[in-house]
């Protein structure tokens, strides 16, 4: 633990030199905003440096530099096809499964480059969990769905019932399912299934949770529940969420990043991005979608 903490302690000078290196191409707001003071920079959950990604000959991410602070909700916004999901998947290396995908650059989780040599990808995915757009519970019982993760990571049998209950409580699902844990997960409603998937992710005790449009298939009430849940979760986890819902981004996230055709246009505090965007393109997108 101490080793990772010390690795994580990036100095402020580091940040400055790195900003000089990118020539302020991305307008960082860190210096102007007390919430992003140098102390803040030490609490980076994820750092992305000069990330480029290609699908075959088509470049889907271009020179991305981005820091994601700990214990915050970070939203990724931008028009369809701009690379949000692609970028999200670089953080837990889910792009590895796409055969023609090529990646250059660095993504550091807790200071460690996850594209470096000798990285244990399964270990990484345990630390960086992911919740998908469409709920994808396994065709097993509710209980087994949650127990699956801890079991594959070798958690002892005795501890599993406790983890299952804790995860379900954390995902605000326990009261609805505690009497039907043996029932198939697919018998739950769509919103419950999505919370089950969140609980399943929590059960492996990650540090970061990536959400890819988790509410796009849900009604306003289920969406509300999941948003409340995220606000609760950020105490213990770092959350990165892709959303098309500008109201949702404005409502729940602390920081936001705007993407356009594979480029990161602007990033900063959510209020800043929404109320006083620095880039014309951000403003156009926000006002078009929001106003």
């Amino acid at each position: 633990m101490n080793a990772t903490e010390s690795k994580n302690a990036f100095s402020y000078e580091d940040t400055l030199s790195f900003e000089n290196a990118i020539g302020f191409e991305n307008k960082y707001l860190y210096e102007q905003d007390p919430a992003f003071s140098p102390e803040m920079n030490r609490k980076k959950a994820i750092e992305v440096k000069d990330l480029n990604l290609w699908y075959g000959g088509n470049q889907a991410l271009k020179k991305i530099y981005l820091d994601i602070p700990k214990n915050k909700i970070f939203s990724l916004i931008g028009p369809s096809g701009c690379g949000k999901s692609t970028f999200l998947r670089t953080m837990n290396r889910m792009n590895d499964m796409i055969s023609n995908c090529r990646i250059e650059g660095k993504v550091c989780v807790d200071g460690e480059n996850i594209y470096g040599k000798g990285i244990d990808v399964t270990g990484l995915r345990k630390r960086v969990g992911m919740v998908f757009q469409k709920a994808n519970p396994f065709p097993m019982s509710i209980y087994e769905n949650i127990a699956y993760g801890p079991k594959i990571h070798g958690v002892s049998k005795k501890e599993i019932p406790g983890i299952v209950e804790e995860s379900l409580r954390c995902a605000a699902l326990w009261d609805e399912v505690k009497d039907r844990l043996k029932e198939p997960a697919l018998s739950l409603s769509g919103g419950q299934q999505q919370r089950l998937c969140i609980a399943r992710t929590l059960a492996v005790k990650p540090e970061v949770i990536l959400f890819d449009e988790p509410c796009s298939a849900l009604d306003p009430i289920s969406t509300g529940k999941i948003e409340e849940l995220m606000a609760e979760l950020k105490k213990d986890y770092t959350i990165v969420i892709v959303t098309h819902n500008m109201h949702q981004a404005a409502r729940i996230s602390d920081c936001a990043a705007f993407f356009l055709s594979g480029e990161l246009i602007e990033t900063g505090k959510t209020a800043q991005i929404f109320e006083n965007p620095q880039d014309k393109r951000t403003e156009g997108y926000i006002t078009g979608r929001f106003g």
Binding site: N92, T122, R125, N136, Y148, C197, T201
Partner: peptide, 27 residues
């Protein structure tokens, strides 16, 4: 077997064998 199930299993940090044995074959 839906790719989403496979991805769900991988995203929890299971390897290919565990995914085959515990998710894909049962499904």
């Amino acid at each position: 077997v839906p790719a989403a199930l496979k991805q769900g299993s991988f995203a929890l940090g299971s390897n290919h064998w565990q995914t085959i044995y515990k998710v894909i074959l049962p499904a």
